[in-house]
Simulated scan of single mutants.
Amino acid sequence: MRFIGACLAAVFAAIAPASLAQTQASQVDEAAPAPPTAEQAPIALLVDATSGQVLHERNADRRFVPASITKTMTAYVAFELLEEGALDPRQTFAVRPETFREWSGKGSTMFLPADARPTVAELLMAIMNISANDGSIVLAEGAAGSVPQWTGMMNAKARELGMTNSHFHSPNGWMDEGKTFVSARDLARLARALILRHPQRYRTFIGNEGFSYNGIAQPNHDPLIGRVEGADGIKTGFTNEAGNGFLGSVERNGRRLIMVIAAADSARVRNNAARDYIEWGFGNFSHRTLFARGSTVGTARVQNGEARHVDLIPLAPISVSVPRGSDPEVSLRIRYEGPLKAPIAEGDRVAMLELEVEGMPTSQIPLVAAEEVAEAGILDRFWNGIAGWFS
């Protein structure tokens, strides 16, 4: 692989000279399964979560009705609130009488009794593993005061994540005449944020084989968990309005792929397509780590700071996927609006690493400040100004 890019010398040490030979030696003898056909999945997307690279796509920006995949955004909002301390997993919420009347036994449910007081942890387990419609409403009302207030938070988070082709009208994705819609690319963006920002909560609340509440045990209908190596979620969806969809993720040996399949005619078609899709992704692309988590990728200039530069690091290991048996040109570029203005907090997202593999779409990976840079005092500004004349 041939690399292009300034301030990225460390990447060469991370790439073994024998990478091409290792790639060729690791090719499988048997042909890997193929991506789903347009008949199987009119909408399909496969993304390398570690690099953000698109490995395959079909109608990735077309809006569609997500059905219960909507609950992924409900989980993300809850995870954000837990992170902020605005929600506690041990906190309990009562079931409002009107909520019980409307949602008791409606679609997928955790069978909440009228007098139930489930914890936030129980609600999240039920929402993400047995697709509890009733649990979604109870969480939304308990945490935000009302469903409209909760969906307002969902849409605010969608905007933060750059989900430009998505809108949420309900916490659970129940049929609402198309008022709730997403795109495959937006869902992949949501899944990456869910996993990268909240890895421990993701492992705890998502990808379980089932969940039992009030003496009623129900299985998770995820088509990959327990059947595909490394599968750990995320969410299926089905209504007559939406067809059969799936947002899924699989991790193997430090590499994670995220897939979206939508508008499949049946659960059987969706499930088979999902298994083939993920195996195709792992079987037809090789993977090479470029930067370890926390390693310095480059630097950015800082204006009016105690330091004139700040190191840039990734939130997770940065890797690249290339088609097996190929030797494409790979370019890496750091982009930011600069110079950055102090003060800068440690962990602030301040730059993007653009990763481009010849013949594949460009992907972007966020970089954060490795350390705090305080605002310079008058004397520091004076010396920084003098130093700037000679830089």
Score class of each variant (00 low, 15 high):
residue 2 R to G: 11
residue 3 F to T: 06
residue 9 A to N: 05
residue 14 A to I: 10
residue 15 I to R: 11
residue 17 P to Y: 02
residue 32 A to L: 03
residue 37 T to K: 04
residue 37 T to P: 00
residue 41 A to F: 02
residue 43 I to R: 00
residue 53 Q to V: 14
residue 54 V to Q: 07
residue 56 H to N: 09
residue 67 A to V: 01
residue 87 L to E: 07
residue 89 P to L: 15
residue 92 T to I: 13
residue 101 R to N: 06
residue 102 E to P: 05
residue 109 T to Q: 13
residue 129 N to A: 09
residue 130 I to H: 01
residue 131 S to M: 07
residue 133 N to Y: 09
residue 136 S to Q: 05
residue 145 G to K: 05
residue 146 S to D: 09
residue 149 Q to N: 09
residue 153 M to E: 12
residue 156 A to V: 13
residue 160 E to T: 15
residue 161 L to Y: 08
residue 162 G to V: 11
residue 184 A to R: 08
residue 188 A to R: 09
residue 196 L to E: 15
residue 208 N to E: 07
residue 214 N to W: 01
residue 215 G to K: 03
residue 218 Q to V: 15
residue 227 R to F: 11
residue 227 R to G: 11
residue 228 V to S: 02
residue 231 A to Q: 03
residue 233 G to T: 05
residue 234 I to Y: 00
residue 240 N to W: 08
residue 246 F to M: 03
residue 251 E to I: 06
residue 252 R to V: 05
residue 260 V to L: 02
residue 273 A to G: 07
residue 274 A to L: 01
residue 274 A to S: 13
residue 277 Y to D: 00
residue 278 I to K: 06
residue 278 I to R: 03
residue 280 W to L: 00
residue 285 F to S: 05
residue 286 S to Y: 02
residue 288 R to N: 13
residue 290 L to D: 11
residue 298 G to Y: 12
residue 314 P to H: 11
residue 315 L to R: 11
residue 317 P to N: 04
residue 319 S to D: 07
residue 337 E to T: 10
residue 343 P to T: 10
residue 343 P to N: 01
residue 353 L to P: 04
residue 354 E to D: 08
residue 358 E to I: 10
residue 359 G to K: 06
residue 362 T to I: 14
residue 367 L to H: 08
residue 377 G to I: 12
residue 378 I to G: 01
residue 387 A to P: 02
